[in-house]
């Protein structure tokens, strides 16, 4: 399985994927930089750790606006490579078994999404230090970045995305082109934002809303959605995991029985 995952990484030397990851990392850094640069008077406070504000802003922008379209486009592109190269038949006549191929591709996707989030974290940290050069009064250099907390919240963004990852992986395998799964994902993303922003309880059952409601990003009111906290995870995060498991298992069953052209 590890060998197959390593091979999957070689396949992803695909320019659109590089561009997508590069775009997400750059846009996140640019937004964080701009939000601090143009609002420096509100941000620079004596004896207040500026990293927490930066971390919160970064994770909120990532969760609400960036992560869903990124995951939708990324998964559609990663699976599209296989369809476009007419590779399934060659893969499925190799001695590994369809499930192994299916899960190794999924594992690669999960790892690369996480890797992109780590890159975002690194770039936004770098933004903090660059801002400190321009505005020393902001005191980014005086405090240490709260990496432990930051990684923890980033992981929670990732968990809230699992449902969408499951659905998009399922759709990308079912439809041969790039456009159909990507379009479905983008439409659902917009619907998810609308439902979440409207404070509609349905959002709890609509995975494309999860990244914006799994915690209060202080962008919209979400009090009517009734999220139950179970300690480590809350009900939205649990729904996301359940949705992921459901779609991944269903996808595997269908893949085992797929007639390959």
């Amino acid at each position: 399985m590890l060998a197959l995952i390593s091979a999957e990484f070689t396949k992803l030397k695909y320019p659109p994927i590089y561009w997508l990851v590069g775009f997400v990392v750059s846009i996140m850094a640019a937004l964080i930089f701009a939000s601090h640069y143009f609002d420096i008077n509100n941000i620079a406070r004596i004896n207040v750790d500026p990293w927490f504000k930066l971390m919160t802003a970064s994770n909120s922008i990532l969760a609400v606006f960036i992560s869903v379209p990124f995951v939708v486009l990324f998964i559609s592109a990663a699976v599209f490579i296989e369809h476009h190269s007419n590779i399934w038949k060659q893969q499925y006549v190799s001695p590994f078994g369809r499930s192994t191929i299916y899960y190794s591709k999924l594992a690669t996707i999960l790892l690369l999404v996480l890797f992109t989030f780590i890159l975002v974290l690194c770039m936004t940290t770098l933004c903090g230090y660059v801002l400190n050069i321009i505005f020393p009064e902001i005191e980014f250099a005086f405090y240490s970045p709260p990496f432990g907390k930051w990684i923890q919240t980033t992981l929670r963004v990732f968990i809230s995305l699992l449902g969408i990852i499951g659905i998009q992986y399922f759709l990308s395998l079912r439809f041969k082109g790039f456009l159909i799964p990507a379009s479905i994902g983008v439409v659902f993303f917009v619907v998810g934002i609308i439902i979440g922003a409207m404070n509609n309880p349905i959002a709890k059952f609509f995975p494309y809303s999860y990244p914006m409601i799994f915690r209060d990003h202080k962008m919209f009111t979400i009090d009517k959605i009734n999220i139950t906290d179970y300690g480590i995870l809350n009900s939205v995060e649990l729904n996301s995991i359940l949705c992921f498991v459901l779609f991944i298992l269903l996808g595997n069953v269908l893949e085992l029985n797929r007639k390959v052209d």
């Binding site: 060998a3 197959l4 091979a7 070689t10 396949k11 190269s85 007419n86 590779i87 038949k89 190799s94």
Partner: peptide, 27 residues
């Protein structure tokens, strides 16, 4: 068994060497 079913399955965005590298890792 080694097989070639109809048109070859090749990643067009990669070189011949990289295409073979994928299968080397797989096997």
């Amino acid at each position: 068994v080694g097989s070639l079913v109809e048109s070859p399955s090749i990643y067009g965005h990669l070189s011949a060497k990289d295409n073979l590298k994928i299968w080397c890792k797989n096997f």
